[in-house]
Write a protein that binds this DNA or RNA. Sequence first.
DNA 1: TGGAAATTGGACTAGGTAGTCCATACTCAG
DNA 2: CTGAGTATGGACTACCTAGTCCAATTTCCA
Lengths: 200, 200
Amino acid sequence: MPQVLTAKGRSTRARIVQAAAELVAEKGAAAMSLDDVCERAHVSRSQLYHYFDDRDDLVRAVINATTDSVLLAQDGLLDHLDTWTGLDRWFRALVALQEGREARGGCPIGSLVGQLAERDPGARENLADGFKRWEGHLREGLERMQDRGRLSVHADPASLATSTMALLQGGLLLTQVRRDPKQLRTALAAARVLLRSAAA
Amino acid sequence: MPQVLTAKGRSTRARIVQAAAELVAEKGAAAMSLDDVCERAHVSRSQLYHYFDDRDDLVRAVINATTDSVLLAQDGLLDHLDTWTGLDRWFRALVALQEGREARGGCPIGSLVGQLAERDPGARENLADGFKRWEGHLREGLERMQDRGRLSVHADPASLATSTMALLQGGLLLTQVRRDPKQLRTALAAARVLLRSAAA
DNA sequence: TGGAAATTGGACTAGGTAGTCCATACTCAG
DNA sequence: CTGAGTATGGACTACCTAGTCCAATTTCCA
């Protein structure tokens, strides 16, 4: 393992993670082979082991990269979850995203849970960190709403954020398994009802 | 492939599916090897291919067996989802189940979605069938409640059932990734709020 | 500019994989 | 009791896998 990465090294490492992330998204974590990664990233075998301890280490890097890209895809939405219109915009964007992919793939992070959580404790923690960051944006938005008196003082922003994330993840799972984006639309409509029921 | 199975044949086939289902639950679908299955079921290689076309065929049989066992584990609860107390009993039982397993494993069906849905279209359909059976019990219960005037005439039992399933699956996913059964408790408490908001 | 560290290439090992094949033993109806 | 179909045993193939190893090349800073 190198002590310091040069610019070239960082670029190679990033290319490896990118290729691995694509393969994980396409074929699943277990079906991603290191040979495939080498081919797609145009690197040799030893470069993988130059930048990563082993396969599990690479998978954990993929989880972090995927989390970053999922949050980036929601950029401009996650910082405005403190108004009803901001929440509705977020919900609509999530549904539109699934319609665009014809309900394929589910949640890039969520679908890794079943694949990795019981297999590699480190991977489970990385996935949990990803969900924490995601849910954190929502919880903070709801807290700001409560501060501004838009949410009842009896409401619990943390629980509401957790329940909304559950509806989102469950809705994505049902969307994926049924190949029907309406499943997510229904779940997020329920999230809207739930949040409104906590309005001041 | 045999035309008719003898009693002995049925027993052997069931032993194979049982062993495979255990391994899938323990190690994930991709990590279940046919050698492992042979060893655990005490059968030889050729017996697998005597009763199943190939690996995918066995996995689909595992999905069906797992669905049956998940529904069986809720026996006595799923037929009483037409009263508030019946719903609460169901919710409490689901939480207790996760507490009993220390939040490990998530939903035996749900966690297979991310592993198989994009890989094998037939597996995806089998999983969708499983969810349909499960959700069907809830939808029918809610319909009976509506018929009896316990649910608003404006409520949509099908959407409520879908949203509740989303909360259940999402809650299980968060429970698994965070190793915390409270995540499911929170999600199901939200389901209760959602259903109550549709009360007559 | 010299040399230590970072980067790269690619062959190689050891083990696991799904699936095939052929022979044998069993079962049960006619 | 016999023979056609069912059930079983286990070796074998061809391939893919993660990980190792040694050597060569490039980078960069002291």
